[in-house]
Design a protein around this nucleic acid. Structure first.
Length: 723
DNA sequence: TTGGTCCATCTTTTT
DNA sequence: GATGGACCAA
């Protein structure tokens, strides 16, 4: 094994520097993962560390997997070194600890993990219970407030009811926590929250984990939130071997509680910490790096990095203004087709966007062109209705206390259990101080004597049709494998005939179920608990396969940590990127800029930046302004031989002056089809079509030798020759 | 009382 | 263009 070969001086220093607290500030493409994996391997191989004492934390399972295989490779492909090394996401690690220590906690080791859909349905119920107006107190907003509190490790009793909204939120928080425990469920934030509580409250547990994890390594440190940081401090103890790698410029999860200031906090909390700066980039051309720096250097209050590469300048960045989002998508598809014809692998291309909604137009364009693509996230597999249904059945079998899952599947497929019957069941449960599942099971055991007077015949029959199979599944849950349970459930509830409605969509849904069956099959030896946990903790990034040779479509968030030879970033319009929801918050705006920076720095060789002249955001399509980031890019880095760049530059100039002037009244139509006109750049042409749009007129013109152009009357200096 | 259909609503990013 | 809520027929 050679853990130290092929490292530059800085990287070598990071890998071999002695124990203690070490902070590596690593620019994009500077070998961050490399340093991390080498250090882990070096600890074990050359310093004689027990692999069991090494813990490496990442944010996605994919990153964890990748790290595992790279460490294995470094250790000479010798799997024997790895057993016992702990590699995983914060959430997976916490889930593991909590299951192990469940007897000290207010839930059992069978707890389920609620995803956002589950959280939402629970909160909706609570809003109803509290008699709140869901418009004013939307479940999403309440959950957001609660999540933020949990990330700051603030529990219900500490939650400040300093505003009227927070007073309401405090009540919702209280209920929400009660209901979670009643369901024997934890949400994502709870995984971290309870682990910190556990370690803080139990000296022996804390001591045991500290003894166990002597060497801790953290990837993407800039994305840690307060709870995660507290957890790291608790685990690493007063004499840490704590190695964190991050880049504040790539911090893009503030909205999820991440706080890049943890980087500064780290330096304050560990005054002896070594800080190592990695600036040499092994990924991109210098042009791409220069574009990236030009953009990010405008963010205030940051430590500047001078990114450099030995790769040379490379090609200039291509800017393109499309007419609308369909045109934008077509440009992407056509360009990829062209590049592919030139010998490029389709899988070397990636298309990135700010919001998932933007993927639809792209998918359309790819489909129409008959070209394959793969997409990360969007409608996440485990978020699909049919998958959630089946998982809910499994979760219920695993943990009958899970009311949210029970209520989801109780009448799916429909079996005559409507609102009234559900209400009756819940009331009965309430009256007997039991969970609704317990009532169902008792009903199944003795249908006649119990509750008969409390439920009308219809409800009882309907409930029995669910209760009977449920009790049968519960009897079998120990002896059956996951796949056997899945098949048993599918069979009993006749799920196939329920979702296959003859449409293509139904067909697709059944195929998804088959895919889940396949996944369940792979978990035969691990059992239901592990299966459900994995299902709850997979992320979109984890779904990316490298097998398919097709371009990748993904959000800028999902792109972090990846790289592609050719990158398209679409939707460079103000309001999309930066997103309009961030406009009034300077911190959020700084994050939008970082997001763009992340996108740019994914590119190895070529970068295409696209925007659309008009775009549909919400409601009708409107004219859009170019993203402010485009103005920050030095013109000499931009490819000038794309004809539309001039149009774009002019348009952007005109837009600026236009938006600064007072709104104009509705435009008068000046042009008609058939008119001959002259344009300063395109020459003479014939008007094909015109349309008045609010304060302007759009004209489609066929220019001699230049083809068809869409222009706007106020911008294009058109001269009418004759009509 | 249930279950289907229709309509309005909104759509940032996700472990 | 999905998702939840309101409305209506059986």
């Amino acid at each position: 094994m050679d853990t130290l070969a092929n490292l530059n001086t800085r990287q070598l220093e990071a890998v071999t520097t002695s124990s203690g607290a070490v902070l590596v500030l690593a620019g994009p493409g500077s070998g961050k993962t490399r340093v991390l994996t080498h250090r882990a391997a070096y600890r074990v191989h050359s310093m004689g560390a027990d692999p069991r004492a090494v813990m490496a934390v990442t944010f996605t399972n994919k990153a964890a997997r990748e790290m595992t295989s790279r460490i294995v490779e470094l250790l000479g492909g010798d799997q024997a070194h790895l057993p016992g090394m702990t590699l995983g996401t914060f959430h997976a690690l916490c889930a593991r600890i909590l299951r192990r220590e469940a007897d000290r906690l207010p839930f059992t080791r069978e707890f389920v993990i609620f995803d956002d859909t589950d959280q939402n349905s629970l909160m909706r119920e609570i809003v109803k219970q509290l008699g709140l107006d869901p418009k004013q107190y939307s479940p999403a907003r309440l959950l957001d407030t609660i999540s933020r509190a949990k990330n700051e490790l603030i529990d219900v009793t500490e939650f400040a009811s300093d505003t009227y909204f927070n007073e309401i939120a405090a009540r919702a928080y209280q209920r929400y926590q009660e209901q979670l425990l009643l369901n024997n469920a934890l949400d994502f934030d709870d995984l971290l929250f309870w682990t910190v509580r556990l370690l803080r409250g139990h000296d022996d547990v804390r001591a045991a984990y500290r003894r166990r994890y002597q060497h801790i390594l953290v990837d993407e440190f800039q994305d840690t939130n307060s709870a995660q940081y507290a957890l790291l401090r608790l685990l690493s103890g007063p004499e840490p071997d704590l190695f964190v790698v991050g880049d504040p410029d790539q911090s893009i999860y503030r909205w999820r509680g991440a706080d890049y200031r943890n980087v500064h906090r780290f330096q304050e909390d560990y005054p002896q910490a070594q800080t190592i700066l990695l600036e040499q980039n092994y990924r991109s051309t210098q042009t791409i790096l220069d574009v990236a720096m030009a953009v990010i250097d405008r963010n205030p209050g940051r430590r500047r990095k001078q990114l450099f590469t030995e790769r040379g300048a490379g090609r200039r960045v291509t800017l393109h203004e499309a007419y609308d989002e369909a045109d934008e998508a077509n440009f992407v598809v056509e360009t990829i087709a062209l590049l592919t014809q030139g010998g490029l692998d389709p899988r070397d291309c990636a298309v990135m966007y700010r919001t998932n909604a933007q993927s639809r137009t792209l998918e359309d364009a790819f489909l129409r062109a008959g070209l394959p693509y793969q997409i990360v996230g969007a409608q996440r597999f485990y978020g699909r209705r049919e998958i959630k249904d089946l998982i809910a059945y499994l979760r219920l079998i695993h943990n009958p206390a899970d009311r949210v899952s029970l209520l989801r599947v109780l009448n799916t497929p429909p079996r005559g259990i409507g609102d009234k019957t559900v209400a009756a069941l819940l009331q009965l449960a309430e009256a007997h101080q039991k969970g609704p599942s317990d009532i169902l099971l008792e009903l199944a055991a003795s249908p006649d004597d119990l509750f008969s007077e409390l439920l009308d015949r219809r409800s009882r029959t309907a409930l029995l049709s669910f209760a009977k199979p449920l009790s049968r599944w519960l009897e079998r849950r120990e002896s059956y494998s996951v796949i056997e349970l899945v098949d048993e459930v599918l069979e009993t509830i006749a799920y196939r005939s329920y979702i296959e409605d003859g449409t293509e969509e139904g067909e697709q849904r059944w195929e998804n179920i088959q895919e889940l069956r396949q996944a369940a099959h792979e978990f035969t030896e691990f059992g239901l608990t592990t299966f459900l946990e994995r299902v709850a903790l997979v992320s979109d990034q984890d779904t990316l396969s490298e097998e398919q040779n097709a371009p990748t479509l993904l959000t800028l968030h999902a792109a972090k940590g990846l790289e592609f030879p050719v990158v398209f970033i679409i939707g460079l319009d103000d309001g999309v990127l930066p997103h309009q929801r961030s406009f009034d918050d300077p911190e959020a705006m700084a994050e939008e800029r970082r997001l763009f920076y992340v996108g740019v720095t994914r590119a190895r060789d070529r970068l295409f930046l696209l925007r659309a002249f008009r775009r549909r955001l919400a409601g009708p399509s409107t004219l859009s302004e170019p993203s402010r980031y485009l103005h920050d890019i030095p013109p000499e880095l931009v490819d000038g031989d794309v004809p539309s760049v001039q149009t774009w530059a002019q348009a952007s100039y005109d837009f600026q002056t236009k938006w600064e002037s007072p709104p104009r009244p509705l435009a008068q139509a000046r042009f008609r089809a058939g008119m001959r006109v002259r344009h300063p750049a395109f020459g003479e042409g014939i008007v094909i079509d015109t349309q008045v749009d609010l304060d302007d007129e759009e004209i489609v013109i066929e220019f001699t030798g230049e083809g068809v152009k869409h222009l706007v009357a106020s911008m294009a200096q058109l001269e009418i020759l004759d009509s």
